[in-house]
Nucleic acid binder design. Structure first.
Ligand SMILES: [Mn+2]
Ligand SMILES: [Mn+2]
Ligand SMILES: [Zn+2]
Ligand SMILES: [Zn+2]
Lengths: 139, 139
DNA sequence: GGGCTGAATTAGACGAAGTCCAGGGTTTGT
DNA sequence: ACAAACCCTGGACTTCGTCTAATTCAGCCC
């Protein structure tokens, strides 16, 4: 999706559109996610943001990711038992997950239909559906 | 599924059928899972097994769950970021997950059809599909 | 029974992900 | 300029899970 250098200004605009005050640290974190368009873990983001020179603390990375999540700027994926992964793609989509390599691949939700679901448990309403297709390297 | 008292002997037989030497600790752990038929976390199992008098260590609980997993006696569910949950139901099925209460409910896979999936990534083969329907308490 | 041997169990140290807090800095509004 | 609100930070802390080295146990043979 996001090809080419993504300017800090555009990222700041994106944050404002979501009601997030764009601070230096928040811009760097959002930039790391949206420039790559990849699924990233918190510690990976921490490393990326501090690659040139240290400028963002661990606490801020975690706080910021939770803020982005609440403002629906990003999604959270619980797939690997060892770490949560953050997804800059908030369009409806699903994932291939290679259980050996750990690689995650997006699956557009466009044509996907799920039929035969039973009614929801009493007193609950649907929030969304996550489909994970587990794969492994051939033979 | 498993109603009524489930005897230790039957559990031992189940373990043998899966190529697992039935030790005292393994029988207790399997018993905890299969008698209830519920989704349980490792620490919950540790507490259950040691409820009367301490007899099983944390290391053994983790070792044993991984063994059961390898022998396909149980399944592992990665849904809650904070803890892995073990599922004594190995029949094909999916889950409702209440994002507020954390409650997990089985969804039989019988009538469920997923259509429109794109081809798998090159060089991978399918392992299985997990569907999680996220719900929340009404209003 | 009494040893022998590999498998199973254990306490407790360790590692990694994530949370929390109190203090200090920065922005905003007037 | 001043206060209030907001933001960031180091580092202690919690929790889940893993690892290791030492012990115990189970099955087997004599
Ligand atoms: Mn992480
Ligand atoms: Mn646990
Ligand atoms: Zn994705
Ligand atoms: Zn289940």
């Amino acid at each position: 999706m996001n090809r080419q250098a993504l300017s800090r200004e555009k990222v700041a605009g994106l944050l404002r559109q979501h009601g997030i005050t764009p601070t230096h640290q928040r811009i760097e974190i959002a930039h790391a996610l949206f420039e790559r368009g990849e699924h990233l873990s918190a510690d990976r983001i921490l490393a990326l943001v501090n690659a040139r020179h240290a400028e963002t603390s661990k606490a801020t990375v975690y706080n910021t990711l939770k803020l982005f999540l609440k403002k629906k700027l990003i999604r959270e994926l619980i797939i690997d038992p060892a770490k949560v992964v953050y997804d800059p793609n908030t369009a409806a989509h699903h994932h291939f997950y290679d259980v050996v390599t750990g690689k995650l691949t997006d699956v557009p939700a466009d044509d996907i239909r799920v039929s035969g679901l039973p009614p929801l448990p009493k007193g609950t309403v649907a929030e969304g559906v996550d489909i994970i297709i587990r794969t492994r390297p051939q033979s």
